[in-house]
């Protein structure tokens, strides 16, 4: 089956990102395809490389980056939600005159159309949120 995953909550405050990660990983292990993982609302905060969780805890952001590298996943952060919350890549830094970037490896920033396209192109849209 071809799946699009939507993540609506940030790391640590909610379990949604953890659940989405484990679901995505399990789906891949079962041979399903992940069309895209789309991060929306506070979910965009899963894509900052500047988090420093305690060493004895899981690293939510790094875990997504590693899964993306391993399976060539398309991790997309919503641009409108990212602008509100300060998730910045090179293009956004230039466009909005920001003095830094923070996007984590494997993530990219794009529009809401990517989410809608996921709904159209995939067999299932699976939403993780509060």
């Amino acid at each position: 089956m071809n799946l699009t995953i939507q993540v609506n909550e940030g790391p640590y405050q909610h379990q949604a990102s953890d659940s989405a990660y484990f679901f995505t990983k399990a789906a891949l292990e079962k041979g399903h395809e992940i069309f895209r993982v789309f991060f929306y609302h506070d979910g965009v905060n899963n894509g900052t490389r500047l988090t420093t969780p305690p060493q004895d805890d899981r690293n939510v952001v790094k875990r997504w980056s590693e899964l993306a590298a391993e399976h060539d996943l398309d991790l997309v952060i919503c641009v409108a939600a990212a602008q509100r919350r300060g998730i910045v890549d090179d293009g956004e830094a230039e466009r909005n005159k920001k003095d830094a970037t923070n996007i984590a490896p494997g993530f990219r920033i794009s529009g809401l159309g990517q989410l809608v396209e996921g709904g159209i192109q995939s067999d299932r849209l699976v939403v993780f949120g509060d």
Binding site: Y40, A80, R84, G111, L112, G113, V116, I120
Partner: peptide, 19 residues
């Protein structure tokens, strides 16, 4: 919370896809 407003943003963008 921002869910209502950001939901509306998806609806408006999604309208272009003629679903």
């Amino acid at each position: 919370t921002i869910y209502a407003w950001e939901s509306l943003e998806v609806v408006l963008i999604g309208a272009a896809f003629e679903q």
